[in-house]
Design a protein around this nucleic acid. Structure first.
Lengths: 241, 241
DNA sequence: ATGGTGCTATTATCGGACAATCGGACTATT
DNA sequence: AATAGTCCGATTGTCCGATAATAGCACCAT
């Protein structure tokens, strides 16, 4: 026998308030940069207690649509920043026991087309950004080198001028960072190989040569795969948050 | 002149409490399914007021690491569900004025390799799920047909058994849904063309033929592009949340 | 313009209160 | 034995009121 009745739904007031505010934000009645009315005023308008309003605000704050400048008490409407969103995605993936292989496989899929798009769409400012990252010393700590490698990908992504792509691959970079760091630490030739690949990718992008950018990015990612083996990292390990 | 000092950081207590709880969740001290101590107990342990604890809980609740069964008051630790995470990503992208072209371009990049991976990784249960979606009537309302089309992609994604990929393309499906619905509504042959493409993709996956799955998925996505034109949808329009 | 000075509005946090209701135990009914 | 009725304590949702700290702002004096 099937279930003839839907479960009766009850929504606490704080969530209704949050939903109402979010509605105004997504429909642009409240625009990014606007300051939110004071809590007491909101409480009056919604006809609820200030505590209830505050719970709703916390909810919106953590999704990134509300924010306050550092050391300010004014609550501003805002757009969720890439980092914040990506953090949430990374955390979710980590909690779901995603493996390093899963992440690497996704990079395999995403990164070459991104580089290709970057080579097509790049503008002067993008090139400058990538180049400044590229020229950053790789001979620093493994920590710094890993950050450099991630930034390189990040800036290539930015050169596509496609926010969907940028946001989609940001969590991958975050989740791969720890193992990347290990590889650079453990595998002697890693830095040099990374630098070489980056040079070719950068050339492809600079010259507006999508095929080259894609090709070398593919090699680069496949090279990481060898790095995992050489560094003794088990691809079945789950990523860390 | 550069900035010689970092801004001194102040974190409200409710965020510290949230961070402390999140820490315990990510390090698996609190495992998914565990019930959270009562608010008063938490307040005692943290040495703060219950209201403060509640604000922290709202934050964690909205990120999906805390949840309550429908109609239950027990707060359980949980892993963020795909839908919830994807909602957040979609909202963020929408607020950033992402265009339909951006989303479509990302689909172009993601979907073919996903179908390819699905053809390689699929198991019996995956096939059954895709097939059941496929056989769902396309001749219903545009609404239902659009949902069917999205579900098809979704289930193909699930057949990859790679949660990163599943999560990455979920927001694309969400954001494309409205325009997809318009296409099906406005362009007469859309349903038939979608059905044809799905049939070929399904065959590729069923036969474990990655090349075929990839090929037809590529065609399929490119076909959508024509659909936008025929339906009079401007690719520069921003997606709706 | 720049730097003080002081008021007010607003937030962060607290304490306590009360109604609703969920979980569970215990009992009665068939 | 399984189901339905009854009851109680624990817990949450929401409210009220209060206080300290301080950001925002206006006003004033250089």
């Amino acid at each position: 026998m099937s279930l003839p009745f839907e479960p009766v739904e009850f929504e606490p007031v704080y969530r209704k308030v949050a939903a109402a505010l979010l509605e105004r934000i997504t429909d642009r009645t409240l625009k990014s940069g606007d300051r939110l009315p004071p809590e007491l005023e909101l409480a009056r308008q919604f006809g609820v207690n200030r505590s209830t309003v505050r719970e709703a605000l916390r909810e919106l704050e953590s999704t990134g649509v509300l924010r306050r400048q550092r050391g300010s008490k004014l609550m501003m409407v805002s757009r969720p920043e890439r980092d914040a969103v990506a953090d949430g995605v990374s955390r979710a993936l980590a909690l779901h026991d995603v493996s390093i292989r899963d992440v690497w496989e996704s990079l395999t899929i995403l990164e070459p087309p991104i580089a290709e798009a970057a080579a097509r769409q790049r503008r002067a400012a993008d090139l400058a950004r990538i180049e400044s990252t590229f020229s950053r010393a790789m001979d620093r700590s493994a920590e710094a080198a890993a950050r450099q490698a991630a930034d390189f990908f990040r800036h290539v992504g930015e050169a596509t001028h496609n926010r969907v792509l940028m946001l989609a691959h940001e969590p991958l970079l975050q989740l791969l960072a720890p193992s990347l760091r290990t590889i650079i630490d453990e595998v002697a030739p890693a830095r040099a190989r990374i630098a070489t690949a980056q040079r070719h990718i950068l050339r492809g992008i600079r010259n507006g040569d999508p095929a080259e950018a894609r090709l070398w990015t593919g090699k680069h990612i496949r090279d990481y795969r060898r790095g995992f083996d050489l560094a003794g990292i088990d691809l079945a390990n789950r990523v860390e948050p």
